[in-house]
Design a protein around this nucleic acid. Structure first.
Lengths: 206, 206
DNA sequence: GTCATTTTATGCGAAACAGTACAAATGTTC
DNA sequence: GAACATTTGTACTGTTTCGCATAAAATGAC
C-alpha cells in the first residue's frame, strides 16, 4: 500500500505537518476568516503548492478536521484504557480534553470541531457531515466503554449505556464551548469533576 | 427616556426588525462569511444606512448577539415559571430551545451564540465577552431556580444549585451543537428527556 | 417658504481575496 | 547524459470585499 518512489521532483515538505500548521490557523480564526495568505505563511508553502497537495481551501479545511478527529479518537481510546476503573477513565478523558482546549496564544481555543466547524455546518454540507460523524464516533467509543462497565458490574445492570455516553459527551461539549468563551480552568475542572461524580454516583446507587 | 420627535428625515425602517433580519444572515453563514451585500439585501437597507444606524459589520453583529441573548433570557424566564414543578420547568426550557434550534431553511441552525460566536471568540474580544456573559447569565437564571427548589424541598437540602445548574446548561450546550451538526429531533428530544430525568432523579433520591 | 438636519441612493476606490498560468527547479527512469 | 514527471516560485486575473464620499430626498424649525 506504500507509495512507490515517485518520479519527478520530490516534495519539500511533509503533508502531515503542513496540515497541523494549517489547523492552527483555522483554529484561531475559523474557516471563513482564514485567508490563503495566512495559511501559506503558516505552512511555509505558497498557494500553488497548497492547491497541488490539498485542493482548495475547503478541501484543506476538511483535511484538518479529519486529522483532528483522528487525533481526538486516539486520545480518547488511550484515556478509556479498560484496565482502569470507569471513573478514572472519564476523569482522564476530561483532563486530556482540557489540556487541549485551554491552550492558545491569544485565548483558550476550545475544541477545534465545535469551535469552528459548527459555524460552517449550515453552508458546507461536507463540514456538517464530518462534524456529525465526529460527534457520533465519540459517543460510540464512550458507549462501548459503558457497555463494558455494565458487563463488569461497574455500572448497575439496568443502566443505559447510550444515555450515559451521551451525558458524558454533553459535559465535553459544554467544556468545549465554555473554554472558548473564556471560562477559567478552575470552573472547567469543577464541571468535569461533577460530570465524573454524576456517572460514578449512578454506579454506587445500585 | 423616549426620543423626542427628531429633526431631519425620519427613518424608513425599524431598527429591531433590521437586526432580526441581519441575525438570520449571520445565523446561517456565520459572522466572517456574511458579507455586507448579504446583510444589505436581507434588511433592504443599503450599506450607508447600515453604517449610519449600526456602525461596521462587527458592531452590527454584536447587536444581533445582544438581541438574541435578550430573547433567550426572556424565553428562559418564561419557561422557569416558578408556579410549575422544577422538572416541568426544565422540560419547557429544552423544548423551547429545540423549537428554535431545529428551525432553518437549509439545515437546523442550532444556537446562534454557540453556532457562530464561538468561531469568532478568539479574534474578537468583544464577541468572546458577550458569549461568556451570555452563558453565565443563562447559568445564573437556572441556578436561581435551583436555589428556590432547595428552599421549597423540590430538591434535597444538600443539593448544590450551582453544580446542578451547570449540568442543566451542559445539556443545552450539547443540544445546541448537535442540532447544528444535523442530529435528528428524536435524538435531541431523547437527550433532553434524560437531562430532565437526571435532575429530577436527584430530587427523588433524598 | 427657507434653512437646518437627518436619512437614503448611487457609485467610487483601494485593498484583499481565491485560484491559476507559466516557467524554473529538482528529481527519477531509461 | 537525455527525456520525462512533479514540485516550486513569481506574477497575474478577475472578483469580491469593506468602508466612505457625494448628492438627492424628506422632514422639522423658524
Amino acid at each position: 500500500m506504500k507509495d512507490e518512489k515517485k518520479r519527478g521532483r520530490p516534495r519539500g515538505f511533509d503533508a502531515k505537518t503542513a496540515i497541523a500548521k494549517a489547523r492552527e490557523v483555522f483554529w484561531d480564526r475559523g474557516f471563513a476568516a482564514a485567508s490563503l495568505d495566512n495559511l501559506s505563511a503558516a505552512t511555509n508553502l505558497n498557494r500553488p503548492s497548497l492547491y497541488g497537495a490539498f485542493g482548495d481551501k475547503e478541501d484543506l479545511y476538511l483535511d484538518t478536521l479529519e486529522a483532528y478527529r483522528q487525533d481526538g479518537m486516539d486520545v480518547l481510546a488511550e484515556a478509556l484504557d479498560p484496565s482502569l476503573p470507569l471513573c478514572d477513565n472519564l476523569a482522564r478523558v476530561y483532563s486530556g480534553a482540557l489540556d487541549i482546549y485551554l491552550h492558545g496564544e491569544i485565548a483558550a481555543r476550545g475544541c477545534f470541531l465545535i469551535g469552528t466547524a459548527t459555524a460552517e455546518a449550515i453552508q458546507h454540507e461536507r463540514v456538517r457531515e464530518v462534524l456529525g460523524r465526529s460527534l457520533n464516533d465519540f459517543d460510540g467509543e464512550i458507549e462501548n466503554r459503558m457497555h463494558l462497565a455494565v458487563e463488569r458490574g461497574e455500572l448497575p445492570g439496568d443502566a443505559d449505556p447510550q444515555t450515559l455516553a451521551r451525558l458524558a459527551s454533553a459535559i465535553m461539549h459544554s467544556l468545549a464551548v465554555r473554554a472558548r468563551a473564556g471560562d477559567s480552568r478552575e470552573t472547567l475542572e469543577a464541571i468535569a469533576r461533577s460530570g465524573v461524580e454524576l456517572i460514578c454516583a449512578s454506579a454506587e446507587r445500585r
